[in-house]
């Protein structure tokens, strides 16, 4: 079975977010980049578990420039067999989805896994777009995935509960918490990652449909109003009469 795991580069979760050039660009100074946690912890690790159980091949796929190679090597260190980087500067989700779909159309895949969203642009868009471009089922926000032959049984989150669904290969799945447990690469994995293939392929022709014009930071809170621990009724009064929240 040929599994493709799409990975995105994202700022570490502890990053302080700042902007430059008149708030038009994300300021990368001092920011450490990681594999987007949902892609790594859930999609990649589940793909590796399926491969370990049933055989097959796990390819990590990234759209971006050479600066992304470090995080791609991390995914290889965790256990992916090989990597592909589509050499393109990401413009927006639809642009990225067209790159991934272009690659899959040319090279084939039984299963495409990715995280439910990236922690930078929080779009939740690429997975569904890839599925639509390939005309295959899209299972979003999946928390469990088991395979029996070519049939997948998947648990996904829906409004007010979960749903168990069945689909057949190929499909696209976005992974959420519960899918797998994060793995930390070991020394052997890190050494092996250095020599695993990382193939760079040219970008497919596409244009972006959206563009970020500017960023802004949320207004700071004006200050916390403290209430004495012995005067809890005062808090309830404030919440009712001042904040009008209860």
């Amino acid at each position: 079975m040929k599994i493709i795991v799409c990975i995105s580069k994202a700022p570490d979760t502890t990053s302080k977010i700042a902007f430059k050039d008149n708030n038009s660009q994300f300021d990368e100074a001092g920011v450490q980049f990681i594999v987007n946690p949902y892609d790594e912890w859930y999609a990649l690790v589940r793909a590796l578990e399926l491969k370990e159980a049933n055989g097959g091949n796990v390819t990590v796929l990234n759209v971006g420039g050479a600066e992304n190679d470090a995080i791609i090597r991390k995914a290889l260190a965790i256990g992916a067999d090989d990597a592909v980087r589509i050499d393109a500067q990401t413009a927006d989700a639809l642009y990225v989805a067209k790159q991934i779909a272009g690659y899959v159309k040319a090279n084939g895949a039984d299963m495409i896994l990715l995280g439910k969203e990236t922690i930078d642009y929080n779009g939740s868009q690429v997975g569904g777009m890839v599925a639509a471009l390939l005309d295959v089922p899209y299972v979003s926000l999946a928390s469990k995935l088991t395979m029996s032959g070519t049939t997948a049984t998947i648990e996904r989150e829906i409004e007010g509960g979960v749903e168990i669904i069945e689909t057949s290969l190929p499909f696209v799945l976005s992974a959420a918490k519960g899918m797998a447990e994060a793995r930390i690469p070991n020394m052997r994995g890190i050494m092996a990652a250095r020599t695993k293939p990382l193939n760079v392929v040219p970008a497919f022709e596409a244009t972006n449909s959206t563009e970020i014009k500017s960023f802004l930071l949320p207004a700071a809170k004006t200050g916390c109003k403290y209430v004495d621990a012995d005067n809890v009724e005062e808090l309830v009064n404030l919440l009712r009469n001042e904040a009008k929240a209860i």
Partner: peptide
């Protein structure tokens, strides 16, 4: 809505209509 349903449907629509999507 950018909820469980919208997150599943909106990107499919965007790709099928080749339209820009702003989510959330």
């Amino acid at each position: 809505a950018h909820d469980y349903s919208g997150k599943a449907v909106a990107p499919i629509l965007a790709a099928k209509l080749d339209a820009g999507l702003v989510s959330g």
